[in-house]
Amino acid sequence: MLAVEVKDLVKDFGSIRAVDGASFDVHEGEIFGLIGPNGAGKTTILRIVSTLLQINSGSVKVLGHDVVKEADQVRRLISYLPEDAGAYKNLTGRAYLEFIARFFGGGNEIKKIIERGVEIANLGERIDDRVDTYSKGMTRRLLVGRALMTEPKLAILDEPTSGLDVTNAREIREIIKKSVKRETTVLLSSHNMLEVEFLCERIALINRGGIVEEGNAPELKKRYRADNLEEVFVKVVS
């Protein structure tokens, strides 16, 4: 079964068409990257897959469930990490993880989920400090821990390393790579093509709301005789 199935997706905001007939599939257990420039429609697509936005036409399915008609079922399968997301500042890192974990289980299950979150976030003793004392990198690690601790069938990560320094970005990438071994499919977006090349098994290039190319990185580079994905993208859109 496909983890994500997007067909002829169209999304308008008033008179502006943000997604224009996008179609792509994500297979179970893979890391799939949506790459494109700012404003290409990546975040809009991820928000639709996450059940946050309605669609104008087309269809989106997550593990066979329609994101519009079966939004409640989809929400039990996914975990969404928005770009530049924050956490509740008056809570400690652990309390925040506990707040989220309570939506996914009861009793011992909650404890196990929190332990996984603490392990993934890897904040040491700082996990018991208030979130408003965290640096940007620490907050992002906490949020990645939050997103992956429930072992979702599909993790949707919007620009997971955006704004982070090299060290923090690298750590986040490692965490994402490990999560796939726990049977989580990852759909992520990025405008950092080098990062996507490193992380993703397959990618889709998106421009002006439409998918302009799809495949794995070596295949695309070969097809367009390019050294890296940046060059591929430039050649595709030109």
Partner: peptide, 15 residues
């Protein structure tokens, strides 16, 4: 909305 916690909340399995 400012902290973008609402987006997370709305994707959780909660009515």
């Amino acid at each position: 909305k400012e902290n973008k916690t609402l987006e997370t909340l709305l994707t959780l399995p909660v009515k």
